[in-house]
Design a protein around this nucleic acid. Structure first.
Lengths: 104, 104
DNA sequence: TTATGCTAGTTACTTTATGTAAGTAATTAT
DNA sequence: ATAATTACTTACATAAAGTAACTAGCATAA
């Protein structure tokens, strides 16, 4: 009955990364700040969920939201250092997909 | 309107890894073959979903299912080479969680 | 021989998460 | 005054996940 316990920090990380869309949002932000509508149209995510994810990621300290009061207003989402630190994770997924998944 | 397209293989990999529980199941199998009931009780996953995930992962070629007709029957799930190749992904998530998430 | 237990699931039903489409608010262009 | 743009939100529908009870096959216990 003795189970090897899973480290709570790792479990937390997995719960973040295994939410639908989260990984792709971070991946898109690796190449620089992006606006809401850019993210929305570049992946197939709905505005409802994108808005939810960005709020979560901001609260978690992974994403930063910045408002530029131009006209029309420009709001940019970018990665914090904590968010940037996820790059190796995404790169490893990228590598795996190239090696093991069929093209096309 | 010109969007950088996301590589379909990467998208596929993300859709696998961002399903709830998938990462944790693979993580548990990194330490060797496990039975259904062991997986079920070591993570908080429900039998219904575990059964679904294992079937998916088997079909994807990530997990292998082996039946030992003992009594009671023993069925073991383990990682294929393709599945083992995901280890670096999980290790990077582990590293990130240790560096960036608060203990406790 | 009926009952109990074990493993590996499945089934029916409930709750939660996500998708869809329309709407809002602020601002500028026509 | 109307339309357009950005960044959302809201109400409602569908899909995914959780819960708890159930099944099947076999073995041991009462």
């Amino acid at each position: 009955m003795n189970q090897a316990l899973i480290c709570p920090r790792f479990e937390k990380a997995m719960s973040i990364m295994s939410q639908r869309w989260t990984g792709l949002v971070i991946y898109q932000l690796l190449t620089g700040p992006k606006r809401f509508c850019t993210l929305e149209s570049s992946m197939g995510i709905s505005g409802r969920v994108l808005s939810e994810r960005l709020k979560d990621l901001e609260q978690q300290g992974i994403v930063k939201r910045e408002v530029y009061p131009e006209t029309p207003v420009r709001i940019e989402y970018s990665l914090t250092d904590q968010g940037m630190a996820l790059e190796p994770v995404l790169r490893e997924i990228e590598k795996w997909s190239q090696e093991w998944l069929p093209a096309e």
